[in-house]
Nucleic acid binder design. Structure first.
Lengths: 225, 225, 225, 225
DNA sequence: AATGAATGAGCTTTCATTCAT
DNA sequence: AATGAATGAAAGCTCATTCAT
């Protein structure tokens, strides 16, 4: 035989998944998610993905068409997952303040647990969201958070609990920003401020703080003095 | 339009900078900042940088040693710049609330105007801050924001204006998160929510909002209800 | 004439060896042996090797991984070849003196005919055998010469033909040294002493001389007077 | 300033040797000897030499003209040194056998102590002695060894001590081969045979052995039976 | 007599992709 | 439905050398 080498991935080492198309697809997708989310789109290597897969590099092209398409598939799955869960959120039975806090907690925890998603979004922004722009799947996703927030704000204002005039989308921005940044910028922040943003007690304190900030903002009489 | 137009030659021939080492260095650094901040470390091309420079690719290696060292130099300059300006901030003559708002305004405006810096930091985080870890220059930078914040909080609490017990570093995190995210995640946010985070009125509204949120948090009687 | 004519194209176009992996590998290996043995490891050029091959430079990396690995493959083949032949030597049916002379003749002739091997070994020594140290293949080669020599010496001493107390490995060193040096140092020796070590009669005379020297050493009553 | 880098050697770190042309020349020559003898001509780097020198890379060109000329200067010095010492050898007062042994001992010890010289000669042979061919200095060196040997042999044969008809140059070849090979092929030999050719006792044993071999060869009645 | 700055040419290697069955 | 073999194009980097004073 030949080509006994380390770099190229034409040959598989692991038991192949012949005749399980869907399994193979998932396998590739999973590995690709890791690769892209930790190395970026340009930094991610088709070879490296193939090497950690039960199949060969050739199959990536067979199933996905190319590097960019694979990346897009990864991105679509990541967005699909969070949207699906967000849409299942059921907050109308809670008091406005409790509902807001529940939403914040959910966002906070989800971002904390899904660093892969966070990194993929960061990567997309590095690339000016050019890949996302090409994705119908992401464009067509049903986004309910804003509506959910709008309804909570409405109820809060109606009940006199919330005084401030804040737009749902701005509120979402503020919540997302904090939850996202804690994860996305963890590495530089930790390095510069000698902190550990992943520590359990820090996490609890921060979750409370962002909740307090949002709630006190909404309750404040005259928002912008 | 693509990112490859670096190689095009329809640019006015710049005067060669022979025997102006410092000038050459700055020239390279400037172009490299653009390249890396818009394409990432892996995506950035040494060839592309050289092409937009008054010198040749060879000079990049002469002055910086390699792609990574050049990237690091870019990163170091970006961090050096913001730290230098932060350190000149003079807020002790302002009332605590005004001081906090001034600090927020400064942070907000700086991030807004320095998208390059924002993107470089994002990129570094994608790479788990591995390059930054190697930089003595960044490690040795004198960071005064936290102290500045601490003194403001102290004065506020002493004067009874601020009630909440918030740590300076957490406050910095919250302010940074919001200002940073607006810029770093602009592209995906705009696309998904059909917004324009760069619009002038949006910008003003957001600046006010983050100020209100922080101030109301600090003033709130019982932070974590 | 220079060594650069590898890049010239006045060679008959060889039939491409598509889908003959083993053939391609051998082709590359053969050309690489020539290149490295005549130019050294640092002096050898991957481009030059590719140019004299039926394939492209890319294939060298596909099959071998890199310049160093290719060089190692060349070295391993060279050592593998001589060991294989040595191991087939059958000298137990000869009288001790005849056996020793036969072994010397074999060594002499093999070195004389395999200048490539000689040069590769010289090159490895220039590099302090650093590449060889990495080769499992060479480390695991079965070396029988020393045993062969030991048995001949034993028989000679038992029969009273050999009187001197010489260790097999030292004997091997002496035989190798002479046979090797004649080839390895041919160029400088010829130049300085205006000789031609490759001339047929010189060769015959030298072969006899080394045989005489070894045999008379082994027969001598009191080796170290 | 600029060019704060590691690879290029335009700037000196050590105290310069201004106004000491001969000192500078010697300094460069010494470092170059180390560099070339351990890395080969192609493997040796002008930059690396400059870096270990009190001067800059530019000076190497100033003093020697180029890499090849520097290498030649190194080679010429190495050959000049050994020839000078050889020429001082005074063996006519010794008995023929003692004279031969003295000459062998000298050769053995010199090679053992001058690994640099050995490696340079090996390197020249790798390059088919092409550099040496260009050197008038080496061509014009006065070589007395062969004459010395011839006279010893003559005296030995006249006195009846030596019986064999061996040519001086062949004798020189045999002696050189052994002494040289022990040093030149030390690394591969040690690796393959798990020996240490540099060990003190091995060295003594080998020195005796080559002496015995040569002497017994010369004394033997009918050299080639 | 000496030197700081600059460089053209070429080197090894990598990458996503396609050929051919 | 699946795959082993092959590859063009370009990327990062290195080297001995010369420019210009």
């Amino acid at each position: 035989m030949s080509a006994d080498d380390a770099t190229e991935t034409n040959r598989k080492a692991k038991p192949s998944r012949k005749n399980d198309p869907e399994g193979t697809r998932q396998d590739i997708l999973e590995v690709a998610t890791e690769e892209f989310s930790s190395l970026g789109f340009s930094g991610g290597r088709v070879d490296a993905i193939a090497a950690r897969t039960r199949t060969t590099k050739r199959m990536i092209y067979y199933y996905f068409g190319g590097k960019e398409e694979l990346y897009l598939a990864v991105l679509e799955k990541a967005y699909g997952d969070i949207r699906a869960i967000e849409n299942q959120l059921n907050l109308q039975d809670l008091e406005p303040e409790a509902a807001i806090r529940a939403l914040i907690d959910f966002t906070f925890d989800y971002q904390e647990r899904h660093e892969d998603f966070i990194r993929l979004v960061s990567i997309e922004n590095i690339h000016h969201a050019e890949h996302m722009k090409k994705s119908k799947a992401i464009r067509n996703l049903n986004i309910t958070v804003i509506d959910t927030l709008a309804r909570i704000l409405e109820r809060g204002r109606a009940g006199g609990v919330f005084k401030a005039d804040i737009q749902p989308i701005d509120l979402h921005l503020m919540i997302s920003a904090f939850c996202f940044f804690r994860v996305s910028n963890r590495h530089t922040f930790n390095l510069i401020f000698h902190q550990d943003l992943a520590a359990t007690d820090t996490r609890a304190r921060h979750k409370r703080m962002i909740g307090d900030a949002i709630v006190s903002l909404l309750k404040a009489e005259t928002p912008a003095a």
